[in-house]
């Protein structure tokens, strides 16, 4: 029994040491961003370039836009990088962020079953397309999670002067990917950012049925969390990242990110 006991003591101490190992002692900043950006693979493409240049590690916490802004508000991130312009401006106006800078944009597309039961392919504008879905009572899968995509969708319904409700309107309350998985199963129409769509593998019968309306333009902004409000914010490193991503080098890195031969994000920093 003494041997067993010694062994257990050794095992427990070993585990405790292992658990207590310091995380990489390197310089890092935390960026709160959206799942759609993370899912597209953009960060995997550009962050190594930034780290190679500056030695700063960027840890991306990918959440819904609402949650990402809340993370910034609580001071749990140094930088917020999301796509919901009105909310971003409110975030800055309330003093949580220093300044919002344009970084890039992509666009939203409406995907749906390839047989297009509501006839979206004939629609001239995005609100007209949404009205066609509601008019036909065709299934529509919504994020329903206050994400940037969900906010954009609500704007479209408002433009179409429709209050979406009924058995055809499925509010998934989950991420873009999960919502697309649902839409592929039903099948249902869904509004998605092009980035997530292009890198989404489980499409089933879905394809793009409407795209190109300027109202579907989806701008991304980057904001430094206000160090006056949260003194622990690593302003210096965070600013280095913001400057880099809005510099020519960063903008080229974004433009060079290609999925399936298509460019996903279009840099537009001033």
């Amino acid at each position: 029994m003494r041997n067993t006991r010694n062994f257990m003591i050794a095992a427990v101490s070993g585990l405790t040491l292992w658990a207590a190992l310091p995380a990489t002692a390197q310089e890092f900043i935390t960026v709160a961003s959206t799942t759609s950006t993370e899912n597209s693979g953009l960060f995997g493409h550009i962050l190594p370039l930034f780290q190679a240049e500056t030695g700063i590690e960027v840890r991306v916490v990918s959440q819904g836009t609402g949650q990402a802004l809340e993370t910034g508000r609580r001071g749990d991130a140094d930088v917020v990088f999301v796509h919901a312009r009105a909310q971003e401006e409110a975030f800055v106006a309330e003093g949580y962020g220093v300044q919002r800078l344009d970084v890039m944009y992509n666009d939203f597309v409406i995907v749906g079953p390839s047989d297009d039961p509501a006839g979206l392919r004939n629609a001239a504008t995005a609100p007209e397309a949404m009205a066609a879905i509601a008019g036909a009572g065709a299934s529509f899968a919504s994020r329903g999670d206050d994400s940037g995509t969900h906010v954009a969708e609500q704007t479209l319904w408002a433009l179409a002067e429709i209050d979406p409700a009924g058995t055809w309107y499925l509010s998934t309350g989950s991420s873009m990917g999960a919502t697309l998985n649902t839409a592929a199963q039903v099948p249902a129409y869904a509004l998605t950012d092009r980035g997530t769509w292009l890198s989404f593998a489980n499409r089933g019968p879905l394809e793009i049925v409407f795209e190109g309306d300027p109202v579907l333009f989806n701008p991304y902004g980057i904001i430094l969390v206000n160090p006056d409000r949260h003194p622990h914010v690593k302003a210096e490193q965070a600013l280095a990242f913001i400057e880099w991503i809005t510099s020519d080098t960063g903008q080229e890195a974004i433009a060079s990110f290609v999925v399936g031969g298509e460019q996903l994000f279009f840099p537009n920093a001033q």
Binding site: N181, F200, R203
Partner: peptide, 10 residues
């Protein structure tokens, strides 16, 4: 969870 969201079900 992430791979499911990306549709990489396999």
């Amino acid at each position: 969870t992430l791979e499911t969201a990306r549709g990489n079900l396999g």
